[in-house]
Amino acid sequence: MSTTLKRHFFSGTAVPIEGDDLDTDRIIPARFLKEITFENMGNYLFHDVRFDSQGKPGTHPLNDPAFKDASLMVVGNNFGCGSSREHAPQAIMRYGIQAIIGESFAEIFAGNCKAIGMPAVSATPHDIRLLYQYIYDNPRKKIDLNLTTKTVHFGDHTIAIDLPESRRSVFLEGTWNALELLKSNEKRVQETAKKLPYMTGFA
């Protein structure tokens, strides 16, 4: 597999997006899904909580110059709940974020993150709180996310992260896009299909 697809170490400043159950409609309101490419999605990230009806920026971490150019995002519990729209992780990635560290993630959202090569990793509520505080105190300091050691390092702290092994290994090996792997089993797919009664009309 291509070495450029291997993703095991991320180092950069982070933006804290506090709050639980931040749903995909909040991450990207549905009206922006009318575009037929993902190209502009980064511009719409958290749009309706970042800007008022006149388009004037309000108080939101993404509008705060202190967190400008962040490449990591720190979030709360059940982040990305709601719709299956890949536009949500696409918006985050195209905004410039390379990995998300949070308390927990909704199932479909986490799968979409994996599919586009952006790890979404979990840490305990205590450690996430610690991380938020560190970022507020040191917004320009870098944070290291290491998938090999399953840790996040910041200041004097090293915290453990949780990421299912099936997800971690594909980032380490560069096989997070499963397409080629799935395709390589084409014959077996055909064989599986043949054994299913509905595929032959229950004849």
Binding site: E165, S166, R167, S169, V170, E173, T175, A178, L181, L182, N185, R188, V189, T192, A193, L196
Partner: peptide
């Protein structure tokens, strides 16, 4: 290889 299942 990563332990996931490929599902038809």
């Amino acid at each position: 290889p990563n332990g996931q299942d490929q599902l038809f």
